[in-house]
């Protein structure tokens, strides 16, 4: 039996093959995009095991829904949306309130959020940091955001979604998206503000 080599085929070809039931073609798609999908899940969940579980679940769902993929977006984008929605569902179920709910309530009520009064920070983004070190610092800072703030930041900065699309994904108003994004950015700036090379040597 002749085996097909899918490694050089582009996504469109592989998707079409997978839609016809070609599992090896789908496996190639998984291998090609698994890191990106995992990275997205990890950035949202902040937990390795959960991110692995959810990205696997996303791939299984992707297979089941392949017939619905029409190519309006790239396959990678389509899969990323699936994993984002799974992560959001999981986060909502976990209901990580704690102190985050206090921030959320303050925001929703339009009360004076701390981000409005924070002094402007001018971090030096490169300051001789290696990418891995920078990622570590960003990781720690992201961990300190509530899941709502973190998700808005991720959807906007990493997925390049517009406010309206984010609002639809998160089932909230555009105003809420804007204020959460603003808060998240300002908090990240403050958390990353003391990035100095000497701190990391």
């Amino acid at each position: 039996m002749t085996e097909c080599d899918h490694s050089s085929a582009d996504d469109q070809v592989l998707v079409r093959a997978a839609q016809k039931g070609d599992m090896p073609a789908f496996e190639t798609l998984v291998a090609r995009h698994r890191d990106k999908l995992y990275a997205r899940a990890y950035s949202m969940m902040r937990n390795e095991e959960e991110a692995i579980d959810l990205s696997q679940e996303a791939w299984v769902k992707g297979w089941q829904r392949l017939g619905q993929f029409q190519g309006e977006s790239s396959f990678a984008t389509w899969m990323t949306r699936i994993v984002i929605n799974l992560c959001l569902d999981q986060l909502r179920r976990q209901k990580r309130h704690r102190a985050e709910s206090i921030e959320a309530m303050a925001e929703e009520s339009g009360g004076g959020g701390v981000e409005r009064q924070m002094p402007v920070v001018t971090p030096n983004p490169t300051a001789g940091l290696e990418r891995a070190e920078l990622r570590q610092r960003i990781d720690r800072a992201l961990n300190q955001l509530s899941y709502e703030h973190r998700t808005v930041l991720i959807l906007h900065e990493f997925e390049e979604m517009e406010y309206k699309a984010i609002a639809k994904t998160m089932d909230c108003s555009i105003g809420t998206v804007m204020s959460r994004l603003f808060y998240a950015r300002r908090k990240m700036a403050a958390l990353l503000a003391n990035l100095k090379k000497e701190d990391l040597t």
Binding site: D35, A39, Y42, S43, V121, A132, L153, M188, A189
Partner: peptide, 13 residues
């Protein structure tokens, strides 16, 4: 600046 810092964050994960 914050946006710049976040660029390429998840490359390499």
């Amino acid at each position: 600046n914050t946006r710049t810092l976040l660029t390429h964050y998840d490359e390499g994960i």
